[in-house]
C-alpha cells in the first residue's frame, strides 16, 4: 500500500493543492519497516525505506503492520478509521513536532488514507 502513496497523492490535484503550503519530511513506521516521506509543496517528492542513521523528520506515525492493514481497509473496524482514533485506543503512536501535523491536519490525514481508495476527496468540497 505504501508503495502507491506518491503516485496516488500526486495524481490528485485537489489534495496537492490543499498541501501547497507544506514542505516537510515525516516518518511512517509499519512494524519493523520505516518509510521517510518527503513533501514538497503538497507533492510527495519521495518515499524512501530505511533504516536511517539520524535522518531528519518533523513527525512520525508508528504502528504495527496489522494496524495499518486495518486502517487501509475500505471500511476499517471501529477504532481503526483514523489516526486519532488509533492513537486514542493505543493502536498507533504519533510523535515529534505535533505543530507541523496540526497546521496541515486534513492534508496529512488525507495523504495517509490515500492508499485506502483510488482517489481521496471524491465528492468533497474540492
Amino acid at each position: 500500500m505504501i508503495e502507491q502513496l506518491a503516485s496516488k497523492v500526486n495524481a490528485n490535484p485537489g489534495l496537492v493543492r490543499r498541501g501547497r503550503c507544506l514542505s516537510t519530511e515525516f516518518l511512517i513506521e509499519i512494524g519493523e519497516r520505516t518509510f521517510h516521506v518527503t513533501v514538497d509543496q503538497g507533492r510527495i517528492a519521495g518515499v524512501e525505506e530505511g533504516p536511517f542513521i539520524m535522518r531528519a523528520w518533523s513527525f512520525a506515525i508508528r504502528a504495527p503492520e496489522t494496524v495499518w492493514e486495518k486502517f487501509w481497509q475500505p471500511h476499517p473496524d471501529p477504532g481503526f478509521q483514523d489516526i486519532f482514533a488509533m492513537n486514542r485506543f493505543g493502536h498507533c503512536r504519533v510523535e515529534g513536532d505535533i505543530n507541523v501535523l496540526l497546521s496541515h491536519l486534513r492534508y496529512v490525514k488525507d495523504v495517509l488514507a490515500t492508499p485506502r481508495r483510488p482517489r481521496i476527496g471524491d465528492n468533497s468540497d474540492d
Partner: peptide, 23 residues
C-alpha cells in the same frame, strides 16, 4: 490553527463512520 475551519474539519473528520455516504 485551532481557530481555522480546515483544522476543525481535520480534527473531526475521522469521527464520521466509513460507511456514511460521502455526500
Amino acid at each position: 490553527d485551532f481557530v481555522n475551519g480546515d483544522f476543525c474539519v481535520g480534527l473531526v473528520s475521522g469521527l464520521c463512520a466509513p460507511q456514511s455516504p460521502d455526500e
